[in-house]
Amino acid sequence: MRRSLLLWFGLVFGTAVTFFLISTDVRRQREELADLHREIYRHQQALHVLKAEWSYLNRPDRLARLIEKHLELTPIDAHHLAPLAAIPPRPRPLAEPTVGLVTGPATTPTTAPTTGAGQ
């Protein structure tokens, strides 16, 4: 009888302690969460300012001025551009001396050099 009573008391005590620990932990995490939210908000604000600054620093006239000052670039002329299709096909490589010529006179030398086109 007394042993079971002790057991029950132990159980009640243990549960109370566990619940207490959990609740303090929840409170701590909640504060941490609020901190994180505040930090996210601060970052969002910073991001917002940076975006405005990025747009400000990318004013076309400023970029043109900087490029003129620091780079050796000129405005692109459309005649510098061409679509991929306009590039002529790679010129056919010159026929290389084929192995057939070297290995011996047994093969007919006239047929060998004409097969270079596939490469």
């Binding site: 002329d77 459309a78 005649h79 551009l81």
Partner: peptide, 12 residues
Amino acid sequence: VARMAPLYGILP
């Protein structure tokens, strides 16, 4: 025309 064509990919 000459300056905007490259921006819009309009080729001569």
